[in-house]
Design a protein around this nucleic acid. Structure first.
Lengths: 351, 351
DNA sequence: TTGTAGGCGTTATCAC
DNA sequence: GTGATAACGCCTACAA
């Protein structure tokens, strides 16, 4: 390891001068260009790199942001594709601010969120992001809330005074309705769970219904409530319901689904019945994780997870910077609009 | 922030004693139980957490492992599901060793791998993992190689003296052949690219053909070479070829595919033709990212990416620990066998 | 413009 | 059993 000391020696300057030139970049204008050059060259020649820990120790902060991925995220995320895009977006956001990015896992006796809190206290990270979606996240919130630190939540719908970044499901459904209206569709089919107590399904359907009404379209419901949360169960349930529905001559020329598994189920039913997509039926999914695996490639509404992660990271970085931001962002909520990605499964309404 | 100093004061001991008790845990047996208790209580009461940077600075190492995700990984990974499982596995491996896990991104003027090298030099991380698959990774290797540091590669097939963890594609195809043989299938169809210069396709097909021969099964080829690397193009190409193939009465009762998109294409063709899966045709895919979206849920060979990431992390941790391991692991290669996950798309051969 | 002293929080060493 | 002291490498402030 090359120390600043050695660089200074090689360049015949004091360690303080070398520090200014290489690391802090302050008062550069007051130093002789020759001196600056000498130091820079010496550093390069010796392969000097500043010691992160020494620097962080003295600065009192780490320029690092962490994300606490709770157990549910991993299972959910690995399978569904949630995790990758969101964490990727965070990475981009963090990186853009010149900070670095740490994945906070569990520790003995400490779950991920608690460990994140510890990382904050250890000043191993300056800010923490805690994604929601899973029950554990909710439980963790009181502790987070009371910790008075730089913490950002994502996809969190319960009360909190911490800043939150959520998806706006509705935007994409409005876009979908508009898109289908432009293609001449008059009668839409909503395919999704009608009975579950999950707010998501209701919000999504409401968005579609409202937008449709606004555009003069009707919406018929096709209830798909799968036996389990497993994707395969949802595909199968949707397929079975769609099979039944499309066997009688249906009046709807377009189906808008609650989720990707449901859309794939409808797609499978269509293929089995010889219902052509999009000629006979336009199909819109939601999630946008594996849309290209469908045939034809599925038009889907995307959560915009990359953007969500990125935005959460930006807020985290903002909070990491100055404590004034903690107050400024108290109670802050923002919603990233979901967006329709048009592919091959939507087309002009059947004449 | 609570310093060790303050805890020591509160507990009426010296700072050195407090350090032994709270952080290093050495020589605990030589201290009075009462003293230990006092210190522990004071620490808890004050909410003391060791300062990570101070500790890392003095120890000369960070107990952190990084992964350099090159640009290609992100695009590839976000879309395909590579990234999530692999990084998740790494996280588990790193965590199990009590280290923490950093995502190394690009920096101005530095790509991810180069930045990873810098992180190593800065002793911001003790070891670095560089996943392969993408061209950038290959280009980065010479620099990594010559850097004499704790670096592990994954899925890297060119020459290097750094330790490498690769997938063993073949294992899963052997399993698939055995599985199908047990179900009474005699004639298999290989569906994949035959002409491309990609080693992957050839290795996978070879594994299937060999295993089949061994079991007394025949293998017929169905060449699917898509116009582009896009998944949708591969699905469409596979569907078109399969449509043609299955329109004439085919002798094969089972199809084994090169990839998940190809398997989805075959599945779509089967649905369109009324070929029932698995009653008329058993279908095996490869990748295992979205197998549950198919109807019926697709039997697929999994890359075992979680295991791969985990194993790479274990090696990285081993190298982080002592430099002796650098030599011990020079030229080390290991292969994680891919594995068949049986779902609903395979069944007894059509009588 | 440059050098130096002091401190960031922890830990290892060694006398007591 | 315990308590000073000197690193770890960098940065700020102040003196020269």
């Amino acid at each position: 390891m090359v120390r600043l000391q050695e660089v200074a020696q090689a360049a015949q300057v004091s360690i303080g001068t070398a520090s200014k030139i290489l690391n802090t970049g302050t008062e550069l204008d007051r130093l002789s260009p020759d001196c600056i050059r000498r130091v820079r060259e010496a550093a390069r020649a010796l392969g000097y790199e500043r010691n992160y820990h020494a620097s962080a120790l003295q600065a009192g902060r780490s320029r690092a942001v962490g994300v606490a991925l709770l157990p549910g995220h991993k299972e959910h995320g690995f399978a569904s594709g949630f995790w990758g895009p969101m964490v990727g977006g965070m990475e981009m956001g963090v990186r853009a601010a010149g900070c670095h990015f740490v994945i906070v896992g569990a520790a003995p006796e400490l779950n991920e969120a608690q460990n994140g809190l510890r990382f904050l206290q250890e000043s191993r990270i300056d800010a923490l992001i805690v994604p929601g979606y899973v029950a554990t996240a909710l439980e963790a919130v009181p502790a987070l809330e009371s910790s008075d630190a730089a913490i950002v939540l994502t996809e969190h719908h319960a009360h909190t005074s911490l800043p939150v970044v959520n998806v706006d499901d509705s935007a994409g459904y409005r876009e979908a309705a508009r898109h289908l209206a432009e293609l001449g569709h008059k009668h839409l089919l909503w395919v999704g769970p009608l009975s579950g107590r999950r707010g998501y399904a209701q919000r999504r359907r409401d968005a579609l219904v409202q937008a449709a009404a606004h555009l003069g379209l009707t919406v018929t419901d096709l209830d798909v409530t799968a036996a389990s949360g497993e994707k395969a169960a949802q595909v199968a349930a949707a397929r079975a319901r769609a099979l039944a529905h499309f066997s009688s001559r249906p009046s709807c020329t377009a189906a808008v689904c609650f989720s990707e598994p449901i859309a794939f189920g409808v797609c499978a039913a269509a293929a089995a019945l010889g219902v052509r997509i999009p000629a006979d039926l336009s199909l819109v999914g939601f999630d946008d994780f594996s849309a290209e695996l469908a045939f034809p490639a599925m038009t889907e509404i995307s959560h915009m997870l990359v953007e969500m992660g990125q935005r959460a990271a930006e807020l985290a970085v903002e909070m990491a910077g100055d404590r004034a931001a903690w107050d400024r962002l108290r109670g802050h909520r923002e919603r990233i609009p979901s967006r329709l990605t048009i592919r091959e499964s939507t087309g002009p309404a059947r004449g």
